[in-house]
C-alpha cells in the first residue's frame, strides 16, 4: 500500500473543511499513512464468495408509523445556533451550494 501523498492529505482536509498548517499536514501525512497501512492488512484476508456487509448485526431497518410528535424543547435545540433573527437561523451567505 503506497503511503499517503501530501496532495491527498490536502484534499481530505479540504473535504473535512479543516485548515491545516504546514507542520500539521506533515504530521497527518505520517499518521493517516500509518492508519491506512494498518487497515491494509485486512486486504490480505480472502473475501471470495463473502457478501459485503455494512452492518455488524443482521437486523432489518425498523419502521415507525407516520405519527407526529411535537418536540417541546425546540427552543433549546435552536439555542445552539450562533446567530438568530426571530425564528430564523442566520448564517453567512454561501451561494451556489447545497442540493
Amino acid at each position: 500500500m503506497p503511503a499517503l501523498t501530501r496532495k491527498e492529505v490536502e484534499e481530505i482536509a479540504l473535504l473535512a473543511r479543516l485548515h491545516l498548517g504546514e507542520d500539521e499536514l506533515a504530521r497527518m501525512e505520517t499518521e493517516l499513512g500509518a492508519i491506512l497501512e494498518h487497515f491494509s492488512s485486512i486486504a490480505a484476508v480472502s473475501t471470495e464468495g463473502v457478501a459485503p456487509m455494512t452492518h455488524a448485526v443482521p437486523i432489518e431497518c425498523p419502521l415507525r408509523s407516520d405519527d407526529v410528535v411535537t418536540w417541546t424543547d425546540a427552543e433549546q435545540g435552536l439555542a445552539g445556533a450562533p446567530k438568530r433573527e426571530g425564528d430564523l437561523i442566520v448564517v453567512p451567505a454561501v451561494i451556489g451550494g447545497g442540493e
Binding site: R64, D66, V68, A74, G77, L78, L88
Partner: peptide
Amino acid sequence: PAGVVFGAPPNSLVDPTVLGLPGSLPVFN
C-alpha cells in the same frame, strides 16, 4: 416524528434528529 406542514412558523418542525443533535437516531417512516 416532527410534523410536515407547509407554511408553518420557521424552525417549528424540528427535533433532535432533524437538527442532527448528538445521540439522535433516525427511524424510517
